[in-house]
Design a protein around this nucleic acid. Structure first.
Lengths: 230, 230
DNA sequence: GAGAACAGGATTGTATACGAAATTAGCCGA
DNA sequence: TCGGCTAATTTCGTATACAATCCTGTTCTC
């Protein structure tokens, strides 16, 4: 059990661990400020610190965790400024991407999106806000995928990751992340192939999201451990 | 000489190495396809493979090098598709960023830009095309800096890095990278605080750049080793 | 003579080990 | 009782060591 004979999956173990951590962060099961000790993480996944370190470095480059020299790795807690920047960058990238998507979307793409949004609504009804948030993010990523621009998709993926942190810190009303139906409207525009409408809808959707954040002061007490007192 | 007692510079050794490699790539002293063996690189900088590995992983995440499992790290050679995507992403980000920059630029910013462009012209006159290219990239980064959006600046920085690879592979005429004066015009717009003009100039500058690439077929013989036959 | 199997060498993937830095706790003195 | 200094512990930064994989050159068989 402690020994691990097989090595090769073709995919590095570090990326697997990074994926698991990323997912936990997206679902808000790991909150900003949480310390990610190399020993601890390595123990959980039963790998050495070398591998753990590689995973953490990966996430650090995505700015999902911040590594402080000689102090360790923590789940990142974006400042107010960073929070604004993330949404400004999204406002720059996503509307035009939505337009491209509308111009390229196939029937299969639309079907997948509808399927996806059903899952979103289901999660919302069940009150599983963590899952709902994750699905909501994936919706944006799926649109980027349809636009078929890998590079931009990567950027958007990163921004959505960080948005998840921003929401964890600055969301105004904890419980109900409002059922805005913005995604439904977007799908309709995509289905019609109406690029201009899609661009406009995405743009205002992002403005809406931003307006639901409270970016006027330092984050509330959701920080863990001593970071709350630092 | 072989022992390295002092450890702490506050900045990790891996990042220093990554910087050095990045610079070499930007200046086209390392060309796409070149193998970056961990032993070799580690030997050059007199660090162990562990540190080398971290540096390479960093660059891999910027897509400046590609790491093939069990094969090693190579200077990335972007495909034609990637090349297009990089410039499409730049077209999405940089014009609006230039507009922001125009609206925020101080006299000091403008002075710095003028200084920078003088260096560009000097390098061009001396025929040092590697240096000229590097400075040209930094010019774009400086504009992003003026816009004061760290997140977007990071993206642009990445894209410019990759542009350097694209240019190494697909530039049409090897020797003269044409003196286009596009940067001069941009500075004038920024100095006037004319955001709309800056946005438009940046946009057409990028189109110009793209049009100087030959993206119709697989890259010429600048690939090294077996990658050329793969 | 050509193709396939095999052995040797080289290179990467991962783990363990050691040294340095920072935090924490304890102690002493004012 | 509280502030500052020192020692101990914890955790990170880097190097070294071992195992697995891939590449290359040779040899064996048909």
């Amino acid at each position: 059990m402690t020994k691990q004979t097989k090595t090769a999956t073709g995919r590095s173990r570090a990326e697997d661990i990074a994926d698991r951590l990323r997912e936990a962060i997206h679902a808000h099961r790991l909150t900003p400020g949480t310390k990610l000790s190399e020993d601890e993480v390595g123990g959980i996944f039963d790998v050495s610190r070398t591998t753990t370190r590689a995973a953490l470095q990966l996430l650090a480059h995505e700015q999902l965790v911040s590594i402080e020299p000689n102090r360790g790795a923590f789940v990142a807690s974006p400042s107010i400024r960073e929070a604004r920047e993330v949404f400004e960058a999204r406002a720059l990238l996503e509307p035009r991407t939505a337009r491209s998507a509308a111009e390229r979307a196939t029937a299969a793409d639309i079907a997948l999106l509808r399927e996806h949004i059903d899952a979103e609504h289901a999660a919302m009804r069940e009150g599983d806000s963590g899952r709902a948030l994750m699905l909501s993010g994936e919706f944006h990523i799926q649109i980027a995928k349809i636009a078929d621009q890998d590079t931009i998709e990567d950027f958007i993926r990163q921004l959505i990751s960080r948005s998840s942190l921003v929401i964890a810190l600055y969301w105004r009303r904890q419980n109900a992340l409002c059922e805005s139906h913005a995604h439904d409207a977007l799908i309709e525009a995509l289905a019609r192939g109406d690029g201009v409408a899609a661009e406009e809808l995405m743009s205002s959707h992002l403005v809406d999201l931003l307006s639901l954040l409270d970016l006027r002061q330092t984050p509330p007490g959701s920080l863990s451990l001593k970071d709350a007192l630092a």
